[in-house]
Write a protein that binds this DNA or RNA. Sequence first.
DNA 1: TCTGGCACTCGGTCGCACAGAGTGCTAAAC
DNA 2: GTTTAGCACTCTGTGCGACCGAGTGCCAGA
Lengths: 343, 343
Amino acid sequence: MQLQPREVGVLTTLIEDYIQTAVPVGSRTIAKKSNLNLSPASIRNIMADLTEKGYLEQPHTSAGRIPSALGFRFYVDSILQYHPLSSEKRNLMTEHIGDAKLDVPDLLRNASRLLSAFTRQVGMVLAPKASDIGFKHIDFVLLKPCLVMTILVVEGGIVQNKIISADPALNSDDLVKFSNFLNHLFQGRTLAQVRARVVQEMEAAKKQYQTMSGQALALVQQAFATDREREVFVEGTVNFFGHPEFSNPAKLRELLALLEERTRLLELLDQVCKPEGISIFFGREVEQDGFQEYTLISSPYQGQDSPLGVVGVIGPIRMDYAKVVPLVEFTAQVISQLLRNRF
Amino acid sequence: MQLQPREVGVLTTLIEDYIQTAVPVGSRTIAKKSNLNLSPASIRNIMADLTEKGYLEQPHTSAGRIPSALGFRFYVDSILQYHPLSSEKRNLMTEHIGDAKLDVPDLLRNASRLLSAFTRQVGMVLAPKASDIGFKHIDFVLLKPCLVMTILVVEGGIVQNKIISADPALNSDDLVKFSNFLNHLFQGRTLAQVRARVVQEMEAAKKQYQTMSGQALALVQQAFATDREREVFVEGTVNFFGHPEFSNPAKLRELLALLEERTRLLELLDQVCKPEGISIFFGREVEQDGFQEYTLISSPYQGQDSPLGVVGVIGPIRMDYAKVVPLVEFTAQVISQLLRNRF
DNA sequence: TCTGGCACTCGGTCGCACAGAGTGCTAAAC
DNA sequence: GTTTAGCACTCTGTGCGACCGAGTGCCAGA
């Protein structure tokens, strides 16, 4: 079902007006704002056609039209022209995200904050999935007798800590030996491979609990016993208050609840995140309660080569895509850049 | 200005009713709910006295009364009887906060979440101030040539990471030597002392950049170059939506903005946190914009002996103090308990 | 094919009246 | 002297009707 050029013109004008005003748009407004040189009456005919085809909706008989999800989809896929980012803005962002001295979580949180500040929407960054990343270093620190802290560093300088209990006979020197042994053993593998290797070695070393390697493996197995939930940094939820679509507190509440509940949020991101390039998802297109009316714009970032995580922006369907999309894209680039130096 | 027993009775009934309903309370209601056996007319006289003395306020002529800040202050200081926590609840909380395997941030975040879930208010936990804690261990990992990750472990198993740049000539073996040297040097000091010591040693070693100790100090100095902001875990902001006092979105927005802006929040906590015992602060009693209408209930937690941080709950002045206060107190106890095992 | 005109629809707002909750005061009862 | 019943008064919230304005759909004519 192709749209005629005039229909596209009306749809574009309508959507862009609606993005600015959040109010149903009438034929008169479009007649004035578009450069089609048609009278309101003609516009009305075109609008009726667009409504029939599903691109527009009418809240009630005597209101103007608002774009439907289909309308927005058509707009972002076929019409939208992105504004390129000004170089001042690029500099400003690069500067603020990345003091390269930051550790990865701080860096990602910064990115999320900046994104939220610049777009006036809610910023979101999904942290790398640890198990896909290369092992770098493991270390044990004896906090007290029987209480050992394991510190696991993966490539890029991402650190995970865990506290485990240990044989009372172990002392600091033992721990140093263990870490030397394990660092050597795990060199150059991903965490997932390390995990597998641990299981395998444990099998082999089953009978030799007394040996150094047996003890070391028992210790490291504890460190790997449970998986950490993948982190998500969500910043700027206050921005929701700026938008008229959130004047209904119940809706706002539902969305905030979704964002606070990390497991549901991760589920949502899983559904939505394509491995490459910018993507724009409307809530109606995903199966997640309470997200029906919102949009997620996201772009993956990567280290040396493989994708690590995702940055994005969450807001109402009515969003200034032309401005927000390039910002999200650029943020992903900056993060990729910063991380690449570390991998 | 002492209150007579009857006045106290009326005030108590009124506040407790108001805590439940959030609606101005009239004389008839009090006459029925209190056990003073007085008619509404008599209650009205007493209420007029209480209003004159500043314990009650009247939103408008024909409304009932609501407690003033002074009224609440009197209530929490002189009247309030805490409900002891049921042992099931104690068990439930202990169990959920503390899998002792968690690292400190996760543990504190958990505590904050639980507190928020049980009180239906917003939970808050202020993390320990690193500089007061004892040094435990420092470690360097070579991520790439010129790029070193420093891992600093302090007592209790709190970890701080930082990425710093290094002399290209350094290799992993050098880093091991450095950390051995420094771990020995800093043994048994607090971070603040370590900082001071680094400065002092740098002075002494000024001329000997070539020596191992000179290089090690140069490296560690970078690691200590900037201070980290003290962390605060705020959880359950969605709970604000449950309370009628937040039906005004502008107020809600202001409070959320305050909670998102960590520096302002830290300022507030600084004003409010007494070093010992539970404390209840009304917004009107502190100088922090946007906090006028809320209450912060807080209690410090400690490791082996000295106070480390604070746990608390933020909500409207109208709060079920009898229930919330013991919960906050108990959470602080559980955290103290868990941390004590590690210090 | 486009446009001017016209009747119609529907939501938002304004004004008004009214009910309900609560007060303060007075006078009578205990 | 204290307590209480009664009463007039005040103020808010709500429901209702009228009205205004924005916008539509359709028809007839350019």
